[in-house]
Amino acid sequence: MNKLYFLGAGGFARELYSYIKEYDFEYRNYQFAGFLSDYSDDLDDFDMIHGVVDNIRSDKVLEGDAILIAVANCKLKDELYHYYKNKNCEILSFIHPMAYVGNNVTIGDGSVICPYATLTADIEVGKGVLINAHSSIGHDAVIGNFSTLSGHCDITGGVSVGERVMFGSHALVIPNKVVESDSIVGAGSVVVKKVKSGTTVFGNPAKKIK
């Protein structure tokens, strides 16, 4: 049986670990082998069956092994996805059984959809996207590769999100707006106009702060 590794060993990795436990660590017929992190003591203070077994860019992961991306950092997700893709690893997605995924929703490989997330209909979710618990995405929205929605975000109908966009918790984007690549939307912000590439916005209404 090929092995399954988590990329990352921080708080979100521990959350994802608790979800995977429901599958007795044989998710999609892979044997869970542990966490990969550059910080070997990440899990020392937690009661975990499995620990950190190697650095996050690991030679232990072999062709045919599988990984789940368990980090929220958008640029890091992008880098790790391509690193392990080049090693011919299987990059898995995870959709929690308590998430709602409606009609004509496409989800790229390496994405994680957490419990109570709602993806309504006619939505395109790219590769390596994290949609955390209680977040919602409305009809005809597009979420670009390696973006992250923290908990309780609301991406309404017709919104277009670029690549590597980070949304803090409780962020809201009103319908049909554009959030360009490599931008950050701060926690609790309400986006009412286009967010340009590489900018950070915060507030209600959201305004550029960086």
Score class of each variant (00 low, 15 high):
Met1Lys: 11
Met1Ala: 10
Asn2Lys: 13
Tyr5Ile: 02
Leu7Pro: 00
Ser18Trp: 01
Tyr19Glu: 14
Ile20Asn: 11
Lys21Gln: 06
Glu22Lys: 14
Glu22Pro: 00
Tyr23Cys: 01
Asp24Gly: 14
Asp24Arg: 11
Tyr27Glu: 04
Arg28Lys: 15
Asn29Arg: 12
Gln31Leu: 06
Gly34Met: 04
Phe35His: 08
Phe35Asp: 11
Asp38Cys: 03
Tyr39His: 12
Asp42His: 10
Asp44Glu: 15
Phe46Gly: 01
Asp47Gly: 07
Met48Asp: 02
Met48Val: 08
Ile49Val: 15
His50Arg: 01
Asn55His: 10
Asp59Cys: 02
Asp59Met: 01
Leu62Gly: 07
Gly64Pro: 00
Ala66Leu: 00
Ile69Trp: 03
Val71Phe: 06
Ala72Gly: 15
Asn73Met: 08
Asp78Pro: 01
Lys85Asn: 13
Lys85Gly: 12
Asn86Lys: 14
Asn86Met: 13
Cys89Asn: 15
Cys89Thr: 14
Ile91Ser: 05
Ile91His: 04
Ile91Asn: 09
Ser93Gly: 13
Ile95Lys: 14
Pro97Val: 14
Gly102Val: 09
Ile107Thr: 13
Gly110Tyr: 07
Ser111Glu: 02
Val112Glu: 04
Val112Arg: 05
Ala117Asn: 01
Thr120Ile: 13
Val125Glu: 10
Val125Pro: 03
Gly128Asn: 04
Val129Asp: 02
Leu130Ser: 10
Leu130Arg: 08
Ile131Tyr: 01
Asn132Gly: 02
Ala141Pro: 00
Ala141Tyr: 03
Gly144Gln: 04
Asn145Phe: 01
Ile155Gln: 08
Thr156Cys: 05
Gly157Pro: 05
Gly158Phe: 00
Gly158Tyr: 07
Ser160Arg: 14
Val161Met: 14
Gly162His: 03
Glu163Tyr: 00
Val165Leu: 07
Phe167Gly: 12
Ser169Lys: 05
Ser169Gln: 13
Ala171Phe: 00
Ala171Leu: 04
Val173Cys: 10
Val173Leu: 13
Pro175Val: 10
Pro175Ala: 13
Asn176Pro: 05
Val178Tyr: 13
Val179Glu: 12
Val179Ser: 13
Asp182Gly: 00
Ala187Leu: 13
Ser189Thr: 05
Val190Ile: 11
Val191Met: 07
Lys194Leu: 06
Val195Tyr: 04
Ser197Ala: 14
Gly198Val: 08
Gly198Met: 14
Gly198Arg: 12
Thr200Cys: 02
Thr200Tyr: 03
Val201Gly: 12
Gly203Tyr: 07
Asn204Val: 15
Asn204Ser: 15
Pro205Tyr: 12
Ala206Phe: 07
Ile209Tyr: 12
Ile209Thr: 11
Lys210Ile: 08
